[in-house]
Design a protein around this nucleic acid. Structure first.
Lengths: 199, 199
DNA sequence: CACATAAGCGGAGTCCGACTCACCTTATGG
DNA sequence: CCATAAGGTGAGTCGGACTCCGCTTATGTG
């Protein structure tokens, strides 16, 4: 009777205005979330994107889904970094820089630290991909370091990811950044401690 | 006209039934939160304590306030541990054991990890006291270790607290405990690395 | 023991914010 | 230029935290 719904809803070209609105929503949400306002109201986000709530819900299943989308994009940027760092520095230094990069990134706003924390501390399947990619990025750094003999070999990407999650999960308060850098240095020392070349 | 409200609302003896109900509410909330159900409904908590919501709100300003109260009590237990450990073990070992104790404690349920995370990652003034006490506990361990020359002296209690917050903030998933132990060991190695006695 | 009275309690009702739905608007391909 | 389906709208629903006020009861005084 109905001519078999094509099970390929993935790649429908998406009408021009729809694309614009989707973009505007993501941008508005990004502004809200990455700024401090982690519990911005959907109504406000929709309004500041110049659309109605109905439109927002046409594009994103739930409020959460919208947040996740915003956050996922941020993580993409971070995941690009390791490759670049490895190309320009010895593995140990690349690792050190990436750890600090995460910290600085988390420092730009309460929102971003929530992103990273969500990636690392939630078991939401939505973040599985981001988590996996980030863990992968770390693994590459660790392996390069282990191969060079400057980093211990018994710590895996996922494990380090967890440890970092905590640091990024801190909410920015007075002196936060200093502490975060110190903890990172601590972890880094721990990572070098068991290296083949060290004690 | 009104005979000057005594500004000592702190120590009003509290009627017997009220005391009972307050206890019952805390107990019910504890059961709910420390078990997995971190977003238990106030209505349900009240019901399972055998009272109405009104009563709940007589005792606790908001839902949050109730949660915080429950969590604060849990932390009290933990803060008692360092003194005992220091009495029975050399400082370095006491420190190691306390770190692991935190991990095990966080492992008993999703709820408890939320407690610890809240203590460490929020700047809510409500947790100020708990945070301070925990930081103090860690400081004592670190100082004892530094005095004995087995732990580096440039890390403070509050800083280590932050680092641990992350570990406890992880939500229990398959293999979580193993990772947490590994990260703790990593931190511990980092702490010993810069010690006077070491390299 | 009886009573006064203030502490305490109940639970229907308010408020507010996420989400839905029935109808209107408009891009687009023929 | 029209048909038509994708897209947009926003008043309305729903659910959950919190309030309010009249009723209940512990408690201490004569």
């Amino acid at each position: 009777m109905d001519p078999v719904e094509v099970p390929l809803p993935a790649s429908r070209p998406l009408r021009a205005d729809a694309r614009r609105n989707r973009e505007a929503l993501l941008s508005a949400a990004r502004q809200a979330f990455l700024g401090g306002d982690t519990d911005a109201h959907v109504e406000d986000i929709a309004r500041s994107a110049g659309v109605a709530v109905g439109t927002l819900y046409r594009h994103f299943e739930t409020r959460e889904a919208l947040i996740e989308e915003v956050y996922r994009k941020e993580v993409d940027d971070l995941c690009a970094a390791p490759a670049e760092l490895l190309a320009q520095h010895p593995p140990e230094e690349a690792l050190r820089r990436f750890l600090l990069l995460l910290v600085e990134h988390a420092a730009v706003g309460k929102g971003m630290s929530v992103v990273l924390e969500s990636i690392m501390a939630t078991d939401s399947p939505v973040f599985d991909e981001a988590r996996a990619r980030m863990a992968d990025a770390l693994s590459r750094l660790l392996e390069a370091g282990a191969a060079a003999g400057t980093v211990r070999g018994d710590v895996t990407g996922p494990t380090l990811l967890r440890a970092l999650g905590g640091i990024c999960g801190m909410r920015a308060t007075e002196g936060w950044l200093t502490e975060a850098r110190q903890i990172t240095a601590l972890l880094f020392d721990g990572l070098r401690h068991g290296a083949a070349g060290a004690a």
